[in-house]
């Protein structure tokens, strides 16, 4: 198993990518899946996800010369582009696909006899996530789906860390208020 590249390695790769197309290709290889997954989670449509993902990487290519390392992962910059691209798209259209078909549980989830209960609970939770205002929704996806740090999410969304915490906190609170019965304990 290969270890994750260090931040210093990533900085070097990004610097090379400013001049060397092959290095940009390596960046693409590293980040394509997560960006596509994030975009897909927001637009819920393959065709739209492909459009937006293309736009993200094309913008990244055109803007990488101006990119400056701030100590954050390079992916944060890509997410920032992605968030903006998705928002641009949301201005003209809304996602229509039912989230019911999008949910699953992790590999190390509960036992089989609890899966059905958990799935129902999860479906209900994510339905509620979809009803949240866009900023709350984006912050929660980046936090809970992409495992990003608050500071990085803040950089991506152009907000302060405190504002991001507030968005997430409000989002979770609103979901809990609407879940109804208290969620069952899961292992």
């Amino acid at each position: 198993m290969s270890s994750l590249p260090s931040h210093a390695d990533e900085v070097q790769l990004v610097e090379r990518a400013k001049r060397d197309p092959a290095a940009f290709g390596e960046l693409y290889d590293r980040h394509f899946s997560q960006i596509y997954r994030f975009v897909y989670s927001r637009v819920r449509d393959q065709s739209a996800a492909e459009d937006v993902t293309s736009e993200v990487f094309m913008k990244a290519l055109r803007g990488i010369g101006r990119y400056q390392d701030t100590g954050r992962p390079f992916s944060a910059w890509l997410y920032q582009i992605a968030v903006n691209a998705v928002n641009d798209r949301y201005r003209s259209q809304k996602p229509t696909e039912d989230i019911d078909s999008q949910v699953a549980v992790s590999d190390r989830g509960p036992a089989l006899d609890e899966v059905a209960i958990l799935n129902e609970e999860v479906r209900q939770i994510w339905r509620l996530v979809e009803t949240l205002p866009a900023p709350q929704r984006a912050a929660m996806v980046l936090k809970f789906q992409e495992d990003m740090k608050i500071d990085d999410i803040a950089a991506v969304m152009g907000k302060s860390p405190g504002a991001v915490k507030l968005l997430i906190h409000r989002g979770v609170t609103r979901i809990r208020e609407n879940v109804g019965a208290a969620p069952r304990r899961v292992r």
């Binding site: 699953a104 989830g109 609970e121 939770i125 879940v179």
Partner: peptide, 14 residues
Amino acid sequence: RLAAILTSVQAPEV
């Protein structure tokens, strides 16, 4: 706990 559930579940591998 709700946050933990949100962290533990995700959309099917896209």
